[in-house]
């Protein structure tokens, strides 16, 4: 019972760090509600360092992942003949402001987060960045899968590596 309480307390601290960070990252990108890609960027900053370590093996840092997100959007728009000056829009965006407190997110983030909580529960461990990375990279489609593809990262290998890091903790 005490372990459960300890885990719940640790999970709450993780969520308190993660959600405002994901919202801030989305806002800086001009997006009102964070998605799984913004959650992944926030996860790379979590103190346990598992996700960051897993991504480092594939030589992907947060700046490169951000660039890959923008790159895959550009590619997707090009398929319908839309060309937008992303840099000009970025320069005109509002400063971002403070997170609203009352947390709202895109479905992709909600699904990934619920999956991560289930993985942590299965491990009987506090939620960590490894669980979150596994959950976020589970979807075969979507911005995260396309961005990793854009970087040439083999998602299956990344997930295997993350599982290994989780197992050796």
């Amino acid at each position: 019972m005490f372990n459960k309480l300890r885990r719940a307390r640790a999970d709450l601290a993780t969520m308190n760090a993660l959600f405002p960070a994901a919202e801030r990252i989305a806002r800086d990108d001009g997006i009102d509600q964070p998605g799984a890609e913004h959650l992944l960027l926030a996860v790379l900053d979590l103190d346990d360092g598992i996700a960051k370590k897993a991504m480092t093996i594939f030589q992907v840092d947060p700046a490169e992942f951000r660039a890959a997100i923008a790159g895959q959007h550009e590619e997707a728009l090009r398929t319908i003949g839309v060309i937008a000056d992303d840099n000009a829009i970025a320069a005109a965006l509002p400063a971002g402001g403070q997170p609203r407190g009352l947390y709202r997110a895109q479905g992709s983030l909600q699904t990934a987060f619920q999956h991560a909580v289930a993985l942590a529960k299965r491990d009987k461990a506090p939620l960590n960045s490894g669980h979150l990375l596994l959950a976020i990279t589970d979807a075969d489609h979507g911005v995260v899968a396309r961005s990793l593809g854009h970087l040439g990262v083999d998602r299956a290998l990344l997930r295997d590596h993350t599982r290994s890091l989780l197992a050796t903790r």
Partner: peptide
Amino acid sequence: SAVVSLRRLADR
């Protein structure tokens, strides 16, 4: 994918 990217473009 194009729909998702158009939504992002519209938001920005």
